[in-house]
Design a protein around this nucleic acid. Structure first.
Lengths: 198, 198
DNA sequence: CCGATTCTGTACCGATCCATCCAAAACCTG
DNA sequence: CAGGTTTTGGATGGATCGGTACAGAATCGG
């Protein structure tokens, strides 16, 4: 029929995602994307409509994989809720430690994009809001489960507790980007749980 | 001697700061800076060495004013520590609600810059680290005072509690940038205090 | 009111921005 | 192996990027 592609679209998307993650949307040039993906400009623009479209799809991919990972941990109803939440924190801290570049982590593409684009781009903002809603739902469920198990004794509204945890996770990412080390991050997560078990 | 300036340098710096705050470093063009300050390119480059230098000074100004405001609240030893901390949260939430543009706040220039530049620019990173150290010190002091007063019963290390509060404040900003409303932000701050009083 | 000095507006610089065009290359079907 | 179709690389597009050059305007000391 026709000449086939010599590259894998998902691999290209992954490479693009990492560049956007490290440099932000404005901070990434189309040349950067060519270098990172190994593709020519033509191949990129033939596959993705624009830099914006490529970013949008990279962000969607990131959110899907990240939130799915978190869902797998938080929805593992075979384990106590408190243990699931601790595991989530441990994974997040581990991620922050492994995406380090010269003393500072890259943080989280979702958080980074919220900072850079949420106020300027309604389309991106809606994507972020959907992802946040999903994570809030996961967190609310694990909080409710922990309460049923008697582990989380806080009388606060589970919705608010979920928002609290979500905010704290974002703050954890910012702290890591600011240079906080593993011990500091772990201490933060320990204290964060105190609010649930008080 | 010579022709005097027709503009106030501090006012120009303020205008530049707001543009960087709203659009980030990469997202702000020199033309944007001319428009916002009302200055011509010559005046800007005659007063500031470069876009980078202008940003650096705008950031320094932001950090100085913001942290000074927070210090004034946290170091007001005439009031109970818990009250001071609540007041800090109230001011932060109020700020986030007033810098809104179309449902999303602009967040905090310090946090935004941490996301955009900390991993790439050692000079900016050091500025941010100094500011963070100063705020951590303020928070540690208020935590220690609250403990002496018997209000904060958490047995955790005051250093860690300060880091926890700092992370939570950043998360509060991110939540606001993501579209969280006043009620949600206030609930988060209430729960955050639970970790200190457990 | 003149000379020295500084500020300011405009034009301009090379580099880079995102995106497109087009011809050559590569593949599948018949 | 020929025709049709898609991909690919390289050249190229106008626009904008950060920054500079330069001439004229504005002010002060004398």
């Amino acid at each position: 029929m026709a000449r086939p592609r010599t590259f894998d679209e998902d691999r290209a998307l992954d490479a693009a995602m990492r560049v956007f993650w490290a440099n932000g949307y404005e901070g990434t040039s189309t040349q950067n994307l060519c270098d990172a993906t190994g593709l020519g400009r033509s191949s990129i623009y033939n596959t993705f409509a624009s830099k914006y479209d490529l970013f949008s799809r990279a962000l969607a991919r990131y959110m899907e994989t990240m939130t799915a990972r978190q869902a797998a941990i938080l929805e593992d109803t075979g384990r106590p809720a408190a243990e699931r939440l601790r595991e989530l924190f441990a994974v997040i801290v581990a991620d922050e430690m492994t995406t380090r570049q010269g003393g500072h982590s890259l943080g989280c593409l979702t958080v980074n994009t919220t900072v850079e684009l949420a106020a300027h781009d309604p389309g991106i903002a809606r994507m972020l809001e959907r992802d946040t809603a999903r994570r809030l739902s996961l967190l609310r469920e694990v909080v409710a489960a922990g309460r049923r198990e008697g582990a989380f004794t806080s009388p606060r509204d589970p919705d608010d507790l979920a928002r609290y945890l979500n905010a704290l996770i974002a703050g954890l990412r910012i702290s890591a980007q600011g240079g906080a080390g593993r011990a500091a991050l772990e201490a933060i997560t320990e204290i964060a749980l105190d609010a649930l078990t008080r």
